[in-house]
Design a binder for these strands. Sequence first.
DNA 1: TGTTTGCACATCTATATAAATGTATTTGTT
DNA 2: AACAAATACATTTATATAGATGTGCAAACA
Lengths: 323, 323
Amino acid sequence: MTKDILIHQIIEVLERAGFMVSDQCNIRPRSFDLAARQGNTLLFCKVLYNIDGLNEETAREMKSLAKYLNGYPILIGAKTRDQLLEDSVVYMRYDIPALSIQTLYDYFVENVPPLVSAAPGGLYVSIDGDVLKEARMNISMSLGALASELGVSRRTISKYEEGKMDASIDIVLHLEEILDMALAKSIDILRSFEKELDPATVNEDTSERKTPPNDNILNLIYTLGYDVLSTKQAPFKAVSKDTSSTFLTGVSEYSNAMVKRAHLMSSISNVIETQSVFIIEGKSRYKFVEDTVLIERDELNNIADADDLDTLIHERSKRHKGE
Amino acid sequence: MTKDILIHQIIEVLERAGFMVSDQCNIRPRSFDLAARQGNTLLFCKVLYNIDGLNEETAREMKSLAKYLNGYPILIGAKTRDQLLEDSVVYMRYDIPALSIQTLYDYFVENVPPLVSAAPGGLYVSIDGDVLKEARMNISMSLGALASELGVSRRTISKYEEGKMDASIDIVLHLEEILDMALAKSIDILRSFEKELDPATVNEDTSERKTPPNDNILNLIYTLGYDVLSTKQAPFKAVSKDTSSTFLTGVSEYSNAMVKRAHLMSSISNVIETQSVFIIEGKSRYKFVEDTVLIERDELNNIADADDLDTLIHERSKRHKGE
DNA sequence: TGTTTGCACATCTATATAAATGTATTTGTT
DNA sequence: AACAAATACATTTATATAGATGTGCAAACA
């Protein structure tokens, strides 16, 4: 399948850029396909051959996860509609930046940021208004003269200089030729997401603690004093957070599928630098699966507060790493 | 100009439907073009030859005004893109229903609601799932049989019955033919707006009182104890509200333009059933212009609280109507 | 270990929308 | 009344997006 080929290429690029990359999420339901970290930069990557396939629910979940864990959602693909993604262009899908592998490579490996963004009406470049104005002044060219030379209205040039309008690629090339200098502002892919966060979405997190989760066990964890962000499409049921620790939280009975999931959670938790915990309904055969700590529901019942649980997790995790 | 022709036709339709219609707003900046009321139904109409020309700011203002005054925003036009608006179809522009004059006529004069809505992908009709299911059961047809008869998948029929999917017009016609009954749900134009209000927008109004307005005089009115919704594109500067009264609020120096504005405000206030007040910076030649009460800024300074101002407005308004 | 169920995702289509911009009209100024 | 400045709005274009739906794979089930 094309998507798998893409994923392998993406892993290659990210590793080459010095990222630590998690296992691929191949368990349903899934929101992101890969987690990756380099220093302070944490990415949640979704991969689609056709970026138009991103659905709104998935986007929402990726955004809230990224925000909660201090990372960035990003969409990587090859096509939009019936054409290939253009390199060095940033597209947006539900406020998540979307790009081709080549653009990803340029950005993270070569440190060459893209200049062009796709928007209704075509492809556009942001112009640095101050630079433009200065350049125009330097050759003492009037606004009107530049406008007629470019073949646009005076008002348009004025808007460029005030930073109130982006320009089409042709216009920018022509302008740069006339003034013989670079005018395009480069796009910071990760920041472009932050800007897009509208006040309403941000609002949700203003409240001190999230509302109690619906799930029984998650609610129990909430009662212990954790902030619990439950997820619908991630390989874990929730992310739980208190002042001292954060852990991915799985919940289910012991089964083969559960073990698979615990492996994946372990890999992801290593990348995003959190603990990983699986609450088992009923009996568990083991105490951990890789770095995922398994806790039986009965054990959870005997726990008084968040500190107790933190301690249990740490001990069990240490015990595993000690062998 | 085409827009003016449209407006006259719209006024004709609305009056025929028993609406009281305000003067046309021909002062810039303007958000809506007409206010109209029939019984409890208050409309703020925007008219554009091409409905695509509605801009986001204008839409926002119309929505907040409508909400604040218990009315409905509506957009009426003739074209979208390069084609005429189809009759009996409801379009949406920034969550405001948009329709042709014919559709307006059918809805308000003939009481025939539209059935079709425009959405990405084309024109769609909502199906009443329960009716569909019952009809299918009645002729003891299996879901699969109906699906293959229609030429769609079983899943599609299932979604129709669960009300989770709208159907294209062709499909609905074919279905109604097979089952020999009406299945389409009619669209309540005004309600369709209410549903679109997202929680974020609604949230703004949750706060007991609005934030203080920037304008000096509006802020003074706010200090008196009024709730003040300031506007940017309406023929008045704000709408002020306390427990006992609501008034359109204009602010400016005395001038010809101001008198024109006061006339328009008078007409609008009659339709939306509020008072209308103009605060004059400096000297005013008159005490009222039609039903708009003129108050000098100095007079406002001598007023202690909202009750005082309410009293002044009522007296001056009565005095006018008494002559 | 097949069988069933349901999601992921690709794809197609036509609408909704943002940029860009010219033109006509209105407003404000002298 | 004449002129300048600002705004409304029509229009063009290409992207963003929602519906609709088939296909194939994964999970759940028997």
